[in-house]
C-alpha cells in the first residue's frame, strides 16, 4: 500500500464514521421525539403541493393555516 492509498483509506474511514455518527444521532433524535411536528412553516409555505400533502408536517401546516 502506498502513501496516497493509505491517506485515502484514512480519509474514507473518517468520512464514513462521521456520516454514521451523524445518521445515528438524527435517527435517535427522531425516534425519541414526542411526535410534535416542526414549526418551520417555510418548508411548507412555498410548496405548491402542500394542498395535497399527506406528510404529518404538511397536515399540521394546513390545519394551522386553515388550508383546505
Amino acid at each position: 500500500m502506498n502513501r496516497r492509498r493509505f491517506l485515502h483509506n484514512i480519509g474514507r474511514g473518517t468520512i464514513l464514521s462521521v456520516l454514521a455518527i451523524f445518521s445515528g444521532t438524527m435517527i435517535f433524535r427522531n425516534l425519541n421525539s414526542n411526535g410534535d411536528s416542526c414549526d418551520f412553516d417555510f418548508v411548507c409555505r412555498n410548496c405548491k403541493k402542500v394542498k395535497g400533502c399527506r406528510l404529518p408536517d404538511g397536515i399540521d401546516y394546513k390545519k394551522k393555516n386553515s388550508i383546505q
Binding site: L19, I27, N30, S33, D39
Partner: peptide
C-alpha cells in the same frame, strides 16, 4: 427542535456513501 424525516436523511447519506 426540527426532526428530519428518515427518508430525507437516507437520500442525503446513501449517495455520499
Amino acid at each position: 427542535e426540527y426532526s428530519i424525516p428518515i427518508s430525507a436523511l437516507a437520500f442525503f447519506v446513501i449517495p455520499l456513501v
